[in-house]
Amino acid sequence: MRPEYLFYLLVFPGLLFTGTLGLVVGCVDRKVSARFQFRVGPPFLQNFNDFFKLLGKETIITKEAVASLFISAPFIAFSMIVLVSAMIGTAMFFGVSFGGDVIVVMYLLMLYSVMVILGGACTGNVYSSIGAGREIKLLLADELAFILVLLVPIVKSGYVLSLDGILAAQQDGLFIGSASGIIAFIVGILCIQAKMTLTPFDIPEAETEIVDGPFMEYSGPPLAFWKLSHLMMWVTFPFLLILLFWGGFNLSGLGILWAILKYLLIVVVMIIIKNTNPRVRIDTALNFFWKYATPLALIALILAVLGA
């Protein structure tokens, strides 16, 4: 283990950077959503206040819960997200891969859902159980399309698996510029919408149906870390898409502006989707992903294999 890994992990682009950016982007989300609804929205540092406030609240553990699992689930999920963001960010900003490749990232992201389910379901709450069931169904729904989306850049870069390798393969042409790339990119945005459980796919934590589902029994610091890791996904997933399809960031001169624009574009598209759709039913989501998004992604893959 080299010492700079600690820097990558804890400062940039890991914990500190992703955490801060996530909290800020979370505010952007709330602010833009509010503008959509003719409202002013919260102050800019609202999510920081929320986070620190939750740290000071009581942690309630239900009498039926497995306390150790209940408490450690959010922290494991959080660590996993930090790790993945550090891996993606390092490849993006420094061109260095460590830890794992695309397949590892994909499987690590599954761990988040696992933790949501384990943490939620061990409380014995009936809503959490339903939420856990929905979470895993949603994972099934989007996973198939997500695998296809991830395979497209792998195929296009000549079967390179490592993150920096895929980035390097885009030196002579961004993948998003090709037909297969753009289709996969669009499906990818839908997939991360579902992975982040944003409306219309906020089925597992549907507040008006099952009262925040798996997160229902959480309070205090564990809840704070759930929220934080969820907000950090606002960084992780768009970065992953940019890395895979949009050539990463070029942080020099005008490149910085481009980088911010790229990132904001994805975020704003996601916010728009979020605000112009009602929550769908779980079977509708399954149908949508399996019968529409997956064939579309398959077409992208076919195009990619054919070299388009």
């Binding site: 959509f36 609804q37 003719f38 409306t199 008006t208 605000n275 009602p278 929550r279």
Partner: peptide, 16 residues
């Protein structure tokens, strides 16, 4: 109804 199906935009608009 919009709020219940997770469509908060409809909620806000209708109440506006």
């Amino acid at each position: 109804a919009g709020h219940f199906i997770g469509y908060d935009t409809v909620w806000m608009w209708a109440w506006k």
